[in-house]
Simulated assay, not measured.
Amino acid sequence: MLPRTTVIWAGSLLGLSLLGGCTQDPFKDIESHERAITAFTLDKGQIGVAEITRTPETGKIVVYAVRGTDLSNVVPTIQTSYKATVSPGSGQPVNLSANNRTYTYTVTSESGEARQWTVEVKDYESDLDGRWQVTNLQFQYFIGEGESWGWNGTKNLSANIPDATKENDNILEMTTTGVTADGKVTGTFTHSPGPDGVFANFMFGAVDYNYKFRKLPRNQGTWLRDFATNTITFNNGQAGQARTVALEFSADKRTLKMPFNVQPYDIDWNGSGSKQELGGAKFAWYMFRKL
């Protein structure tokens, strides 16, 4: 059980930071026994927030980093509990590549009590990394939405554009390469045409619908994953060709759905029913299975 004063300090830390230097510290005559690391951030490669586990006797921090990150000379930023000090200090370079990528810090409270904190760095295992095969490409359409004569539905895109079946054996291979300063994960991709050797061409007769349905760029490029919006943006290096889709994993992470909005909503009222459905498409999605 922590001392009563410890609980008070922990709960009041935010308030103290807001009071600023011009206000007298209400705890200046109370000696702190706290000796915890409250936040730990690498200067490169880290994915997400460090996992901090603490017992009355021990402390452990697990940090996930992009595979291949050079950990031999990193500069962690370390936050400690009220009036505690840490050795080595925050901002001091350390080697986290040795000793099975573990490192021990010592945190000392204002009262002089010390606790050892073990930091362990693990490779970030991305649920995107690996090879994925396209199994289907579907779309949802609305014609005359809200009208008694209207219709809507969900279909395989190949029902309206037969050439879309060529997409169903495509292989998407993704590899995580890094992380941005604001926490987005970066990587590379290769989108190959599969055993049939060809990509789909989304044409309905002479009408080109690639502007609607070619959301997965061909060949190679980079991607940026935004966890806040649960989206991934593909970029093949061509100006104006970045494509953003959502990510929906199955519970076992073995299948993946990438839905996207289909714009613009441009129905050809003089066209056939199939052509009207393509123009009236609002959503489409790729389905993948992990190889």
Rank of each mutant, 00 (worst) to 15 (best):
T118H: 01
N236H: 02
G273L: 06
F213C: 03
D70Y: 04
T85K: 14
T77L: 06
G237K: 04
D123I: 11
D29Y: 08
T231I: 03
T38A: 03
E34G: 01
G280P: 06
G21M: 02
S148V: 07
G144V: 12
E145Y: 11
Y209D: 07
G89F: 01
S12N: 12
Q46P: 08
W151G: 11
G15K: 12
L71N: 07
N230M: 02
E57M: 06
L256C: 07
E173Q: 15
Q133V: 15
R289W: 02
A65T: 13
P26T: 11
E57W: 02
N270E: 09
G153M: 10
S12W: 09
Q241W: 02
L13S: 12
I61A: 05
G15A: 12
D196T: 09
M203T: 07
R131T: 15
I61W: 07
L42Q: 07
R54C: 00
I161L: 10
S158N: 12
Q140G: 14
T190C: 01
D129N: 15
Q24R: 15
G146R: 07
T41L: 06
N100C: 05
D43C: 08
V62S: 10
P259K: 08
R101T: 05
G130F: 03
A98G: 02
N235T: 11
S12K: 09
A284P: 14
P88H: 06
L278P: 07
Y209K: 10
M258F: 10
A181Q: 13
V86D: 06
W9V: 00
L19H: 04
E167H: 11
